[in-house]
Simulated scan of single mutants.
Amino acid sequence: MRLSFLFLLAALLGAASSAPAQNLVSDKNKTKTKTVSLSRTPVKGKVKVVTKKPVAAKKVEAVPVIVFRRTPCFGTCPHYEATVFSDGHVSYIGYRYVPLTGPHELKIPVATVNTIMDDARRLNFATYEERYSQGSTDLPATILSIRQPNGQLKTVQAEEGTPPELEALMKYVAAEIEKVSGGTNAAADR
């Protein structure tokens, strides 16, 4: 019995190796159809193997050129952050005491972005200290990050004692962001 089983197995394997196998390319998507026969008489069944098209790479979003944040205080200070890209696209998140709360996509003119970047270069933004504070505990911070020519973000946090020209730049950025976000709800803005 074992011997007849082995002969039958050998016959089947021999027939399979000598049977014709066809690979057909049926369309431009490279769908392959493969017919496999295990005996000398062809079998009508087909197995389709579909190869998927390569997935297109995700578009890499540009890096932000400006990041602007206003932090909370113990009062009604506006609390939000805005990430600005060179094309004027703004990713905004409003937290408290602002008309727009939650995440929003906004747009400012490219000329405004260029003006901010030019002013930062003119002021040599990279040379400012990382933090301006004189020890007060209830002051909100204004945090401005500017992408430098070397690709790094330079961040300055200002609470009090900020040089006037830097404070003017920060007020300008805040005003432009608040124009497109609806202003602030705070009675006493910094």
Score class of each variant (00 low, 15 high):
T101N: 13
T101P: 14
G102K: 03
P103S: 14
P103N: 15
H104E: 08
E105H: 12
E105S: 08
L106N: 08
L106E: 11
L106S: 07
I108M: 12
P109R: 13
V110E: 14
A111P: 07
A111N: 09
T112I: 15
T112W: 10
V113E: 09
N114R: 14
I116P: 04
M117W: 11
D119I: 06
R122G: 03
L123C: 11
N124G: 09
N124Y: 02
F125N: 09
F125T: 04
F125P: 07
F125K: 06
A126I: 14
A126K: 15
A126T: 12
A126R: 15
T127E: 13
T127Y: 02
E129L: 15
E129Y: 08
E129A: 15
R131A: 06
R131T: 13
R131W: 14
R131M: 04
S133Q: 12
S133P: 00
Q134A: 09
Q134Y: 11
Q134P: 02
G135I: 12
S136H: 15
S136V: 13
D138W: 12
L139E: 08
P140C: 14
P140F: 05
P140Y: 04
P140A: 04
A141K: 06
A141L: 05
A141F: 13
T142S: 07
I143P: 06
I143Q: 05
L144E: 10
S145Y: 02
S145I: 12
S145M: 06
S145C: 12
I146D: 07
R147N: 03
Q148N: 01
Q148L: 09
N150L: 04
N150Q: 08
G151A: 14
G151N: 08
Q152E: 15
L153N: 13
L153Y: 06
L153F: 09
L153S: 08
L153T: 08
T155R: 10
T155V: 04
V156N: 00
Q157S: 15
Q157K: 15
Q157C: 09
Q157N: 10
A158D: 04
A158C: 04
E159C: 00
E159R: 07
E159W: 00
E160Y: 13
G161P: 03
T162M: 03
T162Y: 00
E165V: 10
E165R: 15
E165Q: 15
L166D: 09
E167C: 04
A168P: 02
A168C: 02
L169Y: 01
K171P: 01
Y172E: 06
Y172G: 00
Y172F: 12
Y172C: 02
V173L: 01
V173F: 02
V173H: 01
A174C: 03
A175E: 03
E176S: 07
I177S: 03
I177H: 00
I177R: 03
K179H: 06
K179P: 04
K179Q: 06
V180Y: 01
S181D: 07
S181E: 08
S181K: 02
G182V: 01
G182H: 05
G182N: 03
G183I: 04
T184K: 08
T184I: 02
N185R: 12
A186D: 06
A186F: 02
A186G: 10
A186C: 05
